[in-house]
Every structure is written in structure tokens, then in C-alpha cells.
């Protein structure tokens, strides 16, 4: 694995799963959808610029803190503040950064998350992603298997990735049936 691949793997495992939560947090803080998009892209840009992620011990808290600091930077630069921004900046900063119980990342959970993303795609898109990502075929091989032109496969690839990125943003990945019997958990009093 190259250093860049390792960084991508870190983002995929530790950052992307928290993106939807961060986006919700930002809209509660009063950001409009386009301001939120800009800020999220800026967050990834800052991550891209870092040479190592070794110092990140709690990725979720780190991500939120970074978003908060960027928001403050924006406020200072543009001098645009809304009442909700100010009220929520502090409160959200505290409330949302407590560690959540299910933060442990397991390979199994990640796999089921990835499979759920692929599973949720429209039929043709899904077929392309299954051949490419599950079976590891190239675009040309995928096109031949499905009887489609390479251009169509490329288009479906871009479309599928966009749909998956949207799920990453919105956090509504459909949950696949558990890959082993789930242990019953008792919740309540």
C-alpha cells in the first residue's frame, strides 16, 4: 500500500462514516446547504494536506473540532453570523463530542456497510459495481460481461459513486441483514 492509499483507507474507515453526522451538526448550527457543502469540502482538503493521521486518536471528535474551527474562521472572515450559529457553536461543540459506545470499527461492520451501499444502487449501476468491486473486473471486462459499451459503464460508475457519496453525506445507508446472528440487546429501564 502506498502512503496515499493508506491515507485513503484511513478516511474511508474513520472519517466517511462520521460525515453524515457532521453535516447534520453543521445544519443545526445554522449553515445553509451550500455553505455546508463548501465547508465539508474544505474539511477534506485540510485532511488531504496533512501528511500523517497518527495524531488522530478520536476521529469523530477530531472531525467535528475541525469543522467548528473552520466555521469560526469563516465567521471571522465574512463577519456573517446568524443567531443559531452562535447559540449552537458552543452547545454543539460540547454535546456532540462525547465518545459514542459503538465507535469501535470492525472489519465486519465496514464490509456490511460497503455491501449495503452497493446493494442500494439502481439495478444496472449495481451490476457494474458488483463486477468491478466484488469481482475485481476492469471496465472493459465489465462492459463485455454486461453487453454494454465502455462509455455506458463509465457513466454508470460515475453515477453510482455519486449516489454512494450522497449516502455518505446523508447517512441513510440501508442496513443489510446482519452477517451473523445479532446478539439481543436489552434497552430501557
Amino acid at each position: 500500500m502506498s502512503a496515499h492509499d493508506e491515507r485513503l483507507a484511513f478516511i474511508g474507515t474513520h472519517i466517511l462514516p462520521h460525515e453524515a453526522g457532521m453535516r447534520q451538526w453543521l445544519s443545526r448550527a445554522g449553515l445553509s446547504p451550500s455553505e455546508r457543502d463548501d465547508l465539508v469540502q474544505e474539511v477534506y482538503y485540510r485532511l488531504l494536506r496533512q501528511t500523517s493521521y497518527a495524531h488522530i486518536t478520536d476521529p469523530r471528535a477530531y472531525l467535528y473540532r475541525m469543522a467548528r474551527n473552520l466555521m469560526l474562521e469563516q465567521i471571522r472572515k465574512n463577519r456573517v453570523v446568524s443567531i443559531t450559529t452562535v447559540q449552537n457553536l458552543d452547545e454543539l461543540g460540547r454535546a456532540d463530542l462525547s465518545p459514542t459506545p459503538e465507535q469501535a470499527v470492525s472489519a465486519r461492520r465496514e464490509l456490511s456497510r460497503v455491501m449495503a451501499f452497493i446493494e442500494s444502487l439502481p439495478a444496472r449501476c449495481k451490476a457494474v459495481f458488483e463486477l468491478r468491486k466484488v469481482h475485481g473486473l476492469s471496465q472493459a471486462e465489465t462492459a463485455a460481461r454486461l453487453g454494454l459499451s465502455e462509455n455506458v459503464v463509465e457513466k454508470e460508475t460515475a453515477r453510482g459513486l455519486t449516489l454512494i457519496l450522497r449516502q455518505v453525506a446523508e447517512g441513510d445507508a440501508p442496513v443489510l441483514a446482519p452477517m451473523q446472528p445479532a446478539r439481543t440487546r436489552h434497552v430501557g429501564h
Partner: peptide, 10 residues
């Protein structure tokens, strides 16, 4: 990163 993440399906 999302594209690379999908490789786990392999």
C-alpha cells in the same frame, strides 16, 4: 476515499 473503500467488497 469512497472509491477505495468500495474495494473492501472484494
Amino acid at each position: 476515499a469512497a472509491w477505495a473503500m468500495l474495494d473492501r467488497a472484494s
